[in-house]
Structures are given as structure tokens and as C-alpha cells.
Design a protein around this nucleic acid. Structure first.
Length: 631
RNA sequence: GCCGGCGUAGCUCAGCAGGUAGAGCAGCUGACUUGUAAUCAGAAGGUCGAGGGUUCAAUUCCUUUCGCCGGCACCA
């Protein structure tokens, strides 16, 4: 007798052990059809799972959120099966679920091509139509190693070999294809009906660049075809927000072959930059920072002392003069420390907060470059806070407030921002005791602020742990913007001290912090976030004045000059074109307001205002318009 | 840096099983003097990313190199 308790608290009894699927069938055939997995006593399992004692059961149907991951995981297996059928000598490795889909890495004698993808996808469709049953079996670890070695699947064997001995592992089979997997999986390939292979790429075995490169195939999978269609449509739409595309459309910046990873800012883009920079500068004043400026080039020995040379010399641009080697600064902290070290600092003077719009150069790997997001020459809204240990938590908390004030001002909201605490990496300087202390101070500050945060073990800087603030770009790639890093090491390496209350010399504690991170990246994020429709205060061109015919050119020019001298950023379009054409051209430039001037406006000394979204605000005096802008 | 794809006019893109290139838009000139998302006409615009090779002939094939795009690795 097996008693099974369902989520509605009813209990069903069966004479003997019964599978999940049969329980579902006993409830209704429709439910059985929709079921793809289940929780038995809160443990996820397949529908073929045999319940042989009293248990709690919750079915997972296509409508449940868990279904999606199961479908994606099963689709990854389907992909592997298709690849093995088409290319028998390919070896399978791993195939996990990721955001919106899955990937599977293969080892094969040649790279897969886009044409291969089409073939593989077709094969997958075939396998779905065959309605292959997906079955699970258990095997001892050592037996499984032998099994996969026998199949020539050396990577699989290696993965299993890293599982502790004597453990039982589970294998999933479908139509002659067997893969190591924890499961659960859909009961049959026919449950997979909305997927698409999206791209091929190289990826290192076990994520290590010292290893061989495998062939990775990415795909997306959904419960319904409609969801798949919507997702693909969303991707297309998202690509329209790409800052590289909008940067060209709005004439903001360009990059050219002669300066890879470095930005030529055009007038419009530089206007945007200046507004951002001036705003950040105003925040420095508000939060009691002093702005400084340090040399672009510093002697190599300074970077050796700081420890950066050893870790990053490959990425540092250098030059030589009169037998001395210099580095173009890759960061600003050693410079700030030099300013700090001029004269003696009393504990009474702390904290000291230095800020700099620091222009840095890093010789990033060519493959890492990406529009404004990852560049070789960039400006950090960098700041260093020199303080005592007991001031750390408060400084970090105030910084977090400052950061969110800035993000709100730019309308980035706090929803899309992920907060991460990165802890000690394998290669680091400083004792474990110091790291314990440092990590704890940051975690305490995050908790005191009541933020949701996650921990990234081993991702800290070599000199200290850090809090990172991460935002996503138009297609979901994650980029770090703000960060605050705690550093007990650099001050001692570069001898930055203060005189304590007891007259002794103590090493100061240093906080590295940035809100935008790099202004280039931050502006890239702003472009994508606003889709180029910048709020008035950021818009490079705030309004365009369009005359209907030549007759109003003088009046239009007068209006233009008045707006300009009133401190706005207007543009004038006196081109000999129809008004409809001019409206189109200037609308495509995403200008917040268009001002139309015809005979009517000249006669009544007014302007007619059209908003970016097409709304006609009607005729008004220039003064009325200016006060509207100032709101 | 690694794997793959790509590089043609200012922009978006076509073309080429090898016979020195074509469209739309922009720009220029002219006509029109226009009322809320594209007025008409004309002329012009390219050593097909760069170097080397094969060939009677290369934008097209091969090769080297630079850059871009998508991943991976890296990210002080």
C-alpha cells in the first residue's frame, strides 16, 4: 500500500509501487500528458520515477516555472544526440542550461559551421518526431568510466572520474544515445517543440585557456513555439538598442582601425560626456571629495612597488626615455597615494577623499574589445578614500548611497543592478587575517544597507575584496559599472601612513571606488538603456528649430540664438526641404523637442512645439517654452 | 590571446563558378517655397581593409597581416 499526498492535501492510495506518470494518469489523462517531471518529497525526479513508499507528490507541468529548465536541459541532450548521429566521431562534454537556453560543448576534428547548425537542427526535429522515450538508469561510478571510455567518450570519462568513488551516478538514454546526467528530463523527445540553435563558438575545455578548445553550440528553448517567436523578436528589438549602432545614428562617436579600443568622441557624444562628468563633479562636492589630477606616465618602479607590474605587465603600455622605463598609467591609485604622502597626515584629518577623472590605458586583449564597453583608453570616475579601520563601514555605506543617488538620477533604477561581493582570489597579497577582516567589513556594510547581494568567491582584486555593481546591456551581457574595493595592502607597499592618537605611525586603509567605472562604459550603458532617447538634461541636442520656408529663416535664427544664449543646446535646420522631411530627419536624431516656425509663428511671435513622441504641444512664446524646459 | 564569421561609395547593403563594380539613402548642383515622419531632376562619388602569391587577367582563388562581429579566456 502506497499513500501519495497531493498538493491539495488529498491522499491517493495504491496497492503497489507506482510511477509518477501513472499517478498523473489516475488523476486525469490530460494532466498526465502535460506532466514533464515531479517533486517527490520535495526532490525533483522524472515521471518514470517509481514511488514505492508513502510520499508527497507535486507534478511539474509545462505551466510550472521549473518546466523551462528541464526542457532546456533535455534540448541540450537532444542536440548532443543529433550531433553524435551526424558526426559520430564528435565527443560530448557538458551541456548546461543558461539564461534563455542552453549550450553543449563538443570535441570535434573541425569547427562546426553555420551550415552544420542547420543540419543539426533538422536532425533534432527528426528525433523529436520519432517520439523517443527518455529513460534513466543507474550505474556505479567506475563502471560508468569504463562504459564511456569504451564508447570513446574520453571527456565524459574524465568528468565522471572527478566524481567521488563508489558513488552511483545516473545516465539518461534516448534512442541509443546515452549521457551522464543528474536529471530530471522530459519523458520523451516529443515534449521538445520550441527550440532554435543560435550560434557556434569556441570554448576552452573546463574553462581554462591552457586546455584545448572545444566547439560550443548555443541554443534557445521554450515551452511553446509562440514563446520562442517572442524571444527571437525580443532579441531583434534589443539589437536596435546597441550603443554602437545608436552611436553612429546619433553621431556620438566612432572607432577606427588606427586606434583599436579607443574612442573618437564627436561633438554630440562629447556633449553627453560633459554633462555626465559635470554631474559627477557636482556629486563630489556634495559628498565631500576633493578633485585632484595625477601624471599620465609614471616610472615603472612605482608599479613594481604597488604590485601591478608583476600581475599586469603584459597589459601595461610602456615607453622609454633616457634609459628609464615608464608606464602609461593603467590606474590612478599609486598617483593618489603620492599626493596623500606629501607631508604628514594626522588621524584627525581622516578620512581624506580624493577624486579624479583619471585617464587610463590598458592593453586589453584584442578579443576583449567591445564598443564603448571594453576599451583600451578610458576615463574612470576614480576615487580613493584614505581612512582608519573604524571608518570603513561608514564610508562604504555612504558610498553606496552616493552610487544609488547617481543611478537614480540617470534613471537606471535599482531593479536592474546586481550587487556582488567578490572575495579573496588564489593569487593575492596580504595575510588571511587581513582578508577575513576586509571581507567582513564589506559584507557588514551591504547588510546594513539592506541590499540583496550575492557572493563571488575568488573574484576579488589581488589586494582586496570588492563590491561590484553590475548592469546588463541590450542583449543581456553583464558589465560592471560601479565598485568599491577595500585595500589594506597598497598603503603598506607604498608607505602611506598617518599619525595615530598615540603618536605612532600607522598604515592608512584605502578604499578604491568608482560609480560609473569607466565613463565610456557608463555612457554605453546609458545609450542602450535610453535607446538614444536621452532625457532633456542629457540630450546632446535638446531641440531643433525647423522653418517651413525661407521666409522665416531670420526669425528662426533669432529663436535659435536666444535659446543658445539662454544656456540650452538647440540646433537649427534651415534646409530647403518640406517640413515633413525635416521632421522625419530630426525625429530620427531622437531630439526631445522640434520647434516649427512658419508665417503664423512669425506674425504672432510664437513657436510651435512638437515633442519627441509626436505630441503637438501647440503654439507658445519662447519664454513659455524655456520655462517648460526648465521644469 | 584562442575558435569561427565578416571587411565592396559617407551610411545600409547587392554583386563576382576569375574578365578592374551596382542600388537606396546621405552629400553636391538645379528646380520647387513648402504646415507635422521621405518633392522632383541632374551630375558626381569606390586603387572592393592592407601586403604577397597563382593566373593572360584577382574585388572574386591561395597566403600573410590589420580591424570588426559572435563566443571563450582575461578584466587592477
Amino acid at each position: 500500500m502506497v499513500n501519495i499526498k497531493l498538493p491539495d492535501n488529498t491522499t491517493r492510495s495504491f496497492d503497489q509501487a507506482i510511477t509518477v506518470l501513472d499517478v498523473a494518469k489516475s488523476i486525469s489523462p490530460g494532466l498526465a500528458k502535460a506532466t514533464i517531471a515531479a517533486y517527490v518529497d520535495d526532490k525533483m525526479c522524472d515521471v518514470s520515477y517509481l514511488i514505492d513508499q508513502d510520499a508527497k507528490l507535486k507534478l511539474i507541468t509545462e505551466k510550472d516555472p521549473e518546466a523551462l529548465d528541464i526542457i532546456r536541459h533535455s534540448t541540450a541532450h537532444l542536440l548532443a544526440q543529433a550531433v553524435k548521429q551526424l558526426y559520430p566521431t564528435a565527443q560530448v562534454t557538458i551541456g548546461p542550461v543558461i539564461d534563455n537556453g542552453f549550450y553543449y560543448d563538443f570535441s570535434y576534428e573541425r569547427p562546426f559551421t553555420p551550415e552544420d547548425l542547420t543540419l543539426i537542427e533538422r536532425k533534432m526535429d527528426e528525433l523529436v518526431n520519432l517520439n523517443l522515450q527518455v529513460t534513466r538508469k543507474k550505474m556505479l561510478r567506475d563502471e560508468a568510466i569504463e562504459y564511456f571510455k569504451f564508447l570513446g567518450e574520453n571527456y565524459k570519462a574524465e568528468i565522471i572520474a572527478s566524481i567521488p568513488q563508489n558513488e552511483t551516478i545516473s545516465l539518461y538514454s534516448q534512442g541509443g544515445f546515452t549521457d551522464l546526467c543528474r536529471g530530471p528530463h522530459v519523458p520523451s523527445t516529443s515534449k521538445l517543440k520550441a527550440f532554435k540553435l543560435t550560434k557556434v563558438a569556441g570554448a576552452y575545455w573546463r574553462g581554462d585557456s591552457k586546455n584545448e578548445m572545444l566547439q560550443r553550440i548555443y541554443g534557445t528553448a521554450w515551452v511553446t513555439k509562440e514563446e520562442l517567436r517572442q524571444y527571437l523578436h525580443m532579441l531583434e528589438e534589443a539589437e536596435k538598442r546597441d550603443h554602437r549602432k545608436i552611436g553612429k545614428q546619433l553621431d556620438l562617436f566612432h572607432i577606427q582601425d588606427e586606434a583599436p579600443g579607443m574612442i573618437f568622441w564627436h561633438a554630440n557624444g562629447w556633449s553627453l560626456w560633459q554633462v555626465v562628468e559635470q554631474y559627477i563633479r557636482s556629486m563630489y562636492k556634495k559628498y565631500n571629495y576633493v578633485e585632484v589630477k595625477t601624471p599620465q606616465i609614471l616610472d615603472r618602479t612605482l608599479w613594481e612597488k604597488s604590485g601591478h607590474w608583476e600581475k599586469f605587465h603584459d597589459d601595461i603600455f610602456t615607453l622609454e626615455s633616457e634609459h628609464k622605463q615608464y608606464a602609461i598609467k593603467p590606474m590612478n591609485c599609486p598617483g593618489h597615494i603620492q599626493i596623500y604622502k606629501q607631508g604628514l597626515t594626522s588621524y584627525r584629518d581622516l578620512p581624506i577623499r580624493f577624486a579624479e577623472f583619471g585617464s587610463c590605458h590598458r592593453n586589453e586583449a584584442s578579443g576583449a574589445l567591445h564598443g564603448l564597453m571594453r576599451v583600451r583608453a578610458f576615463v574612470q570616475d576614480d576615487g580613493h578614500i584614505f581612512c582608519m579601520e573604524n571608518q570603513i563601514q561608514n564610508e562604504v555605506m555612504v558610498f553606496i548611497d552616493m552610487l544609488f543617488e547617481v543611478y537614480n538620477k540617470f534613471d537606471l533604477g535599482s531593479d536592474g543592478i546586481a550587487v556582488k561581493l567578490s572575495t579573496r582570489p588564489a593569487k593575492r597579497i596580504g595575510s588571511d587575517e587581513v582578508w577575513d577582516k576586509a571581507e567582513k567589513s564589506l559584507a557588514d556594510a551591504l547588510n546594513a544597507k539592506g541590499l540583496n547581494w550575492e557572493i563571488l568567491p575568488g573574484e576579488g582584486a589581488f589586494y582586496g575584496p570588492k563590491i561590484e555593481f553590475e548592469v546588463k546591456d541590450c542583449i543581456g551581457r553583464k558589465w560592471t559599472t560601479g565598485s568599491v574595493q577595500l585595500d589594506f595592502s597598497m598603503p603598506s607597499r607604498l608607505e602611506a601612513e598617518y599619525i595615530a592618537a598615540d603618536g605612532s605611525k600607522q598604515f592608512v586603509v584605502m578604499l578604491h571606488r568608482a560609480i560609473c567605472g569607466s565613463l565610456e562604459r557608463f555612457i554605453g550603458i546609458l545609450i542602450e538603456h535610453h535607446m538614444g532617447n536621452f532625457p532633456l538634461w542629457l540630450a546632446p541636442i535638446q531641440c531643433a528649430i525647423l522653418n517651413i520656408s525661407e521666409k522665416q529663416a531670420n526669425y528662426a535664427t533669432t529663436m535659435y540664438n536666444k535659446l543658445r544664449t539662454a544656456g540650452f543646446r538647440p540646433q537649427i535646420d534651415l534646409s530647403n526641404e518640406k517640413i515633413g522631411y525635416k521632421i522625419r530627419q530630426n525625429t530620427l536624431k531622437k531630439i526631445p523637442f522640434l520647434i516649427i516656425i512658419g508665417d503664423k509663428e512669425v506674425e504672432t511671435d510664437t513657436i510651435t512645439v512638437r515633442q519627441r513622441d509626436g505630441t503637438d504641444l501647440g503654439a507658445m512664446s519662447l519664454e513659455q517654452f524655456i520655462s517648460h524646459l526648465q521644469q
